[in-house]
Design a protein around this nucleic acid. Sequence first.
DNA 1: GTCTATAAGCAGATAGAC
DNA 2: GTCTATCTGCTTATAGAC
Lengths: 210, 210
Amino acid sequence: MSNRDRILDLSLRLLNEEGAQAAGTTRIAQTLGISPGNLYYHFKNREEIVRGLFAALEAEFRAMMIEDVAPPISPARFAGFYLRSFEVAWKYRFFFGGLHHLLRKDEKLALAYRDLQAWALDELEAIVRQLVKDGSMAKPKTRNGFHSLGLNTWLIWMNWIRFVQISGKDEVTRDDMIEGVGQMFDLLVPYLDADFEKAARRVLARELRG
Amino acid sequence: MSNRDRILDLSLRLLNEEGAQAAGTTRIAQTLGISPGNLYYHFKNREEIVRGLFAALEAEFRAMMIEDVAPPISPARFAGFYLRSFEVAWKYRFFFGGLHHLLRKDEKLALAYRDLQAWALDELEAIVRQLVKDGSMAKPKTRNGFHSLGLNTWLIWMNWIRFVQISGKDEVTRDDMIEGVGQMFDLLVPYLDADFEKAARRVLARELRG
DNA sequence: GTCTATAAGCAGATAGAC
DNA sequence: GTCTATCTGCTTATAGAC
């Protein structure tokens, strides 16, 4: 494993454990047992490390979204899709707590983030549209129903991890992530076909036990 | 105006403009034209300033919540209540972007925040229950319907300001806040009485123009 | 209550040897 | 590709005069 990868690996761990602002280049290098100079050979500055981690998040997130949008959307795929989205979020959780600060200090990262967000919002809306097309869901009532539902989905997704961390539980578990899925799920429940809903819930319940 | 109040005032402005981590005690003192020593006479440390600002946020937020929960809830009061909640959030917006970091570094603040959050979740759930009691809304379908709706309301509220700031608009306006209200509102729409909904929307539309 | 002066520490980053 | 050594600039916070 190259030092470059070791730096990314450890950075992700430290940032996740201690927060996006906690670990500096000095400590990262120290903990790895390499010199600051070595670290700065691989990364021009601290921001480049964070951008590297964001690139990994983005790749996993995009792959997951694309893989699962193909119609028709079965209850199991639907539940699995939401579930995996939370697993990706959890893997890179430092990002969600420190987002505002990170984007403020790094214009390049801000642009990359906004790109991803715009794309994700479109995709989330597309999923809702597809569910309606599949007959698994009634058309939302509000004027901008599709858009609004997609956006609320995104807002819950973005905030769930932060909410759990902020709420001060000693240990965050996989079940907390599944609860998050349920929270997102509840946004659509009023519109979902009863059978579709039941089937999706069963998948989630199985995950909770497993 | 006492120097203590001037410190709180300026801190709020700087933190809002530049982010919760940007302005340090040195710059606050400098900008006010007072000495660091003077600042540290009034506040034991930087965290005490932030806690002072949080106390102000909490006071305004609690006052607003208590004032508006009394039954029955009219559409105008309902819309006005959501609207004012966003105005309070906007006034102390630095808090929402930097929350994770702030709470991590200050255990006292974390406890105060969690108290407020627990209380707010109860109140938000109570509002939903009251709407159902008033006949303005159908009973939510999901098993923990009341709780889930209250929680989603909170998650949208907590995240809207951050979402707007992160999304990179050059200037954030009052209309953006009203859009946030609409986003929160849409959570309840599937269950709301049609007349109640229309009336509440009219109030919001009027605010948008005004 | 307000000031000057400054300690102590840590951050990000670089130069240049090997 | 990795090292040692170090610079610069910032921060929080304090001691003690007025």
